[in-house]
């Protein structure tokens, strides 16, 4: 029995890669793997977010917990999250969750002394760890280094202050996952679609008048088909625009031309779109998701002590 394997050998092709956007094709695997990747990116790839807030002074119009909640939602650069400890597993601080291995401390101290309304933003958060700062602050400092465009753009607004009001607090950011609270999810959106396979029955299509072809092409709510301006032939211009709405199939039937087009979903080909909040690069989200699934599978392996039919197994051997 040794050496037997029923492994799949998936292929990946990258279509587009930006810091917060990643589009790729995943082939030769099945929907369970595609869906596991999607679910893990949304709910189980860890990031860092503010989790504990100690308010020292707050005379703003928003109450303490409202501000604490807003702070939690600010995406923080989380490139180090995979290597960081969860506070609940941290033995360096024994559940306190405030040591350097499992937390990052922030301070905020703003007071308005003018008649102009003062915006308190992510810019005002002072981190004790330069690698963990709000993502918008990081991208602005990067932009100003490389030519300095739009460095005056304001940060994420936390609260607005009028004359005499102040906000002073200490915040602890921790590692967490989206399953615990959505603020820890690195995903803005993660979607995949089955690649559609579209076959036009050319012979039947040529029995249509140009007017009929136009009305058939226009029956699709998304622009999947078009008419060649020279040959007047109907062609597929964007198969992925097809949203499995079956409108063109119904239209063909209504026109008395069933079988004009056949559309299948390829069951082993997926087109992924990954958008990140910025906490982790979109491409890294996929890599981290793969690593997390590996860790999860490793955790569900059977321990030697709990194999009920070991006796039976040795009998077979």
């Amino acid at each position: 029995m040794e050496g037997v394997s029923y492994q799949r050998f998936p292929k990946i092709k990258i279509r587009e890669m930006k810091d917060d956007y990643f589009k790729f094709e995943l082939r030769e695997t099945d929907a369970s793997m595609a869906n596991a990747l999607r679910r893990v990116m949304i709910a189980e790839v860890p990031t860092i977010a503010i989790d504990l807030v100690e308010i020292e002074a707050n005379s703003s119009v928003l109450n303490d917990e409202f501000i604490a909640h807003r702070l939690g939602l600010i995406p923080l650069v989380s490139d180090d999250a995979m290597g960081m400890r969860f506070s609940r597993d941290c033995d360096a601080c024994d559940g306190d969750g405030q040591c350097e291995y499992c937390s990052v401390e922030f301070h905020l101290n703003v007071r308005c002394d003018s008649d102009q309304t003062l915006d308190v933003t992510s810019n005002d958060l002072r981190s004790t760890e330069p690698r963990v700062i709000p993502v918008d602050v990081a991208s602005r400092s990067l932009a100003s280094e490389s030519g300095g465009y739009d460095s005056q753009e304001r940060g994420i607004i936390i609260v607005k202050l009028r004359r005499g009001q102040e906000l002073r607090l200490r915040a602890i950011a921790r590692k967490g996952i989206g399953k615990d609270h959505a603020k820890w999810s690195p995903a803005a959106t993660v979607t995949f679609l089955y690649e559609p396979e579209i076959h036009i029955n050319e012979e039947l299509m040529e029995t249509l008048t140009l007017e009929e072809k136009r009305s058939w092409v226009e029956s699709s709510p998304t622009k999947v088909f078009d008419i060649d301006p020279d040959t007047y032939q109907v062609k597929v211009v964007d198969p992925e625009a097809y949203s499995y709405d079956e409108e063109v199939i119904k239209k063909a039937e209504a026109m008395g031309k069933p079988g004009l087009v056949e559309i299948y979903a390829k069951e082993d080909s997926f087109i992924f779109t990954v958008e990140s909040t910025g906490a982790i690069k979109a491409y890294q989200m996929v890599i981290n998701a793969i690593e997390i699934i590996k860790q999860k599978l490793d955790a569900v392996r059977l321990q030697d002590s709990e194999e009920p039919d070991m006796g039976e197994l040795t009998q077979h051997l």
Binding site: S5, Y6, Q7, R8, F9, P10, I12, T29, M33, I287, I290, E291, I293, K294, L297, D298, V300, R301
Partner: peptide
């Protein structure tokens, strides 16, 4: 589990 693990290795 072994097969899935190898598939994920390949993917990575």
């Amino acid at each position: 589990i072994d097969d899935l693990d190898r598939e994920l290795d390949l993917l990575k």
